[in-house]
Design a protein around this nucleic acid. Structure first.
Lengths: 212, 212
DNA sequence: TCAATATTAGACCGCTCGTCTAATTAAATG
DNA sequence: CATTTAATTAGACGAGCGGTCTAATATTGA
């Protein structure tokens, strides 16, 4: 998710190179993701995204009906990207389940650090500013969280079956608890420009699990 | 924090009634707090705040140097308001310390419900959109969180001394953990328009404390 | 060759934003 | 009282926004 380069921009109908045909659109999406994970929806202007990749406005409204539609697509893209990330970690049979969860935490932590704690979680960002957003986003954002909860819960259950955590743990609830708090930690990490909050929350969460 | 009424608005220098002299300014602050707790800083327009209380633009820039200065004052006001709230709950010697913490949670929960989960935490809101905010806010927002952590930690220590929670609990860390997660819970409550997240997080947090 | 299609270029409109100046009124001064 | 000074309101202003539109350009397919 790191694309600042501007495409070679030729006027008129482009030659038929299927791999390249989506390029401008793709650049817009990528730049949009970067912008929205940093600053959210409301304070990100179309022109700003356009400028990042050197695309004129006409192109934007050729590919997207509106800013709302653009945002909706970014949500989908981010959800897909994140689902893959979770799948990759949580489904990694070479590790014990609890270590898989930790691996995700470490990955996210490194990611935030890599971007100097400027970028957060798109879903969290949009959730926070929901009051100023198209109402149509709400259901989708909730659904994404629910998906993450499910994935997390499944991995917790695996940990339970392998005896890593007590039977008494309600995996479903613990997963919900994790994502609630994790988003708070991401918020704080951005504010403090430090991974302290991420680490402290994760550590606290896992410690609590084992003694539940 | 509930003021929609518009002031009687006469032109020119007002007669000398000390109690009323701050009225317009006060109305702006109150309306600003409402707006910012709902939608944050970036997506709240000055005009919008002005319209709520029927004050013309000229007045705003008479009382505040800029939107940035206005925001800074709102942060101070909110911090003061919240500190009082915490003081009131955490210092209530008629309850056991852990119940005082619960009382705050209940109070906050009721408050969010009362406003149909549209309003969140000003500090959390601004923290989230920090990337689009005057850099001068960062230190202040962090300091406010730190203050809240301290107050919470002191109450936890009291609980510890009364044997409500094990000696093994690191109160400082637990307090930091709480606020990290609580802000996440407020975010989710707004998104889901439900107090489910608040309750689930608080319950999980206190359950973890006792078994630590 | 030419119509249909895909894409870029960027002017333009209506609206809202934050700022600023002028007008208005009361207080203070003598 | 008359005049200056301070306090407040009124609303014009320019910049920038999101979104639309038409023209220009290039390729494809008939």
């Amino acid at each position: 998710m790191e694309a600042q380069q501007t495409a070679v921009r030729r006027r008129g109908r482009p030659p038929k190179r299927p791999e390249q045909s989506l390029e401008t659109r793709e650049l817009l999406v990528r730049a949009g993701l970067e912008a929205l994970t940093e600053k959210g929806f409301s304070s990100t202007g179309i022109d700003e995204v356009l400028k990042r990749v050197g695309v004129p406005k006409g192109s934007f409204y050729h590919y997207f009906d509106s800013k709302e539609a653009f945002g909706a697509e970014l949500i989908e893209r981010y959800a897909r990207y994140f689902a893959h990330k979770l799948e990759r970690h949580f489904g990694d049979a070479s590790m014990r389940p609890l270590d898989r969860l930790w691996a995700f935490v470490e990955d996210a932590r490194a990611g935030m650090k890599r971007h100097d704690f400027r970028r957060g979680c798109l879903i969290g960002n949009l959730g926070q500013e929901m009051a100023a957003l198209p109402e149509s986003y709400r259901a989708r954002l909730n659904a994404v969280f629910h998906d993450w909860e499910q994935r997390f819960a499944r991995c917790l259950e695996a940990a339970q079956q392998q005896g890593e955590i007590p039977r008494s743990v309600d995996c479903e609830q613990a997963a919900v608890f994790f994502w609630i708090g994790w988003e708070g930690a991401v918020l704080r990490a951005k504010l403090e420009r430090s991974d302290k909050a991420l680490e402290l929350f994760a550590r606290g969460f896992f410690a609590g699990l084992k003694k539940a």
